[in-house]
Design a protein around this nucleic acid. Sequence first.
DNA 1: CTTGCTGCAAACAGTTTGCAGAACT
DNA 2: AGTTCTGCAAACTGTTTGCAGCAAG
Lengths: 143, 143
Amino acid sequence: MILEKKKAFNLFATSKGLRSTRQRDVILDIFLSTHQHVSVEELYLKIKASNPGIGQATVYRTLKLLVDAGLASEILLHDGQTRYEHVMAGEHHDHLVCTGCNSIIEFEDETIEKLQNEIAVRHGFLIKNHKMEIYGLCAGCRK
Amino acid sequence: MILEKKKAFNLFATSKGLRSTRQRDVILDIFLSTHQHVSVEELYLKIKASNPGIGQATVYRTLKLLVDAGLASEILLHDGQTRYEHVMAGEHHDHLVCTGCNSIIEFEDETIEKLQNEIAVRHGFLIKNHKMEIYGLCAGCRK
DNA sequence: CTTGCTGCAAACAGTTTGCAGAACT
DNA sequence: AGTTCTGCAAACTGTTTGCAGCAAG
């Protein structure tokens, strides 16, 4: 599955006339190895640990490429940092965000997806994607 | 209804020992007179037009107060600016965001709310609030 | 009078950009 | 060789903060 994504990226790169560079390989690799919802900062530190020479700018630039390639997408939580999550083909995961410990629980609910589609149809709207975040306290933080 | 909100803010202010100032009145007034989803910039310009002396910092600070008072809430779209929307008591409105023309359609769906609660319960999660945004093309932009 | 609030400008944090050199094709 | 990509640092943008003066209680 990681391999598939690398292939997907190479296809995308070739189709766009982009070059394949060591940096992009490394960044994609490490991005794919992270948990969901990495911030650029987190990712950059992780990358620097094993590959010192790589600059933040390249990380930013490459993440945008990954978004264009459909392998990542931005999520904006309320902590002032842009985070990137993995895009699984055809899968929507939504988030329970704990404001106590900042942990993120993912969930999926088919019925909600269906309702979203109905709403979209009712408004003549063509859905591309969606974000749903529920804020509150997780079991651990409710005490 | 605007009056109710002003009262609500005064109550909040008193209960917190905050002072009532001309600036806060003006900012609340103008915020209440705007459409949903104002960015700070937009609001600030509108305020400056009728009340030159007021500084951005005060607008920022006051908006945070409005959030604390439960009269406004932040929304993060993908345009790099924090926007504030009106909070109607007990009402959750979610958004269909058109990536073509940037218009925002609001909707409410009780069944989705219910499902969210079920999901929260299933994870031992205590909901404080939630945000749902569906991105895509509105009827006009689909052509 | 006391304390909180304001405006200003400077400080900040995250992100973007210009450019000279390095590296892919 | 010709271009694209990279790293660096400087530039930007949106937001926050320190502080001296102002104003509400």
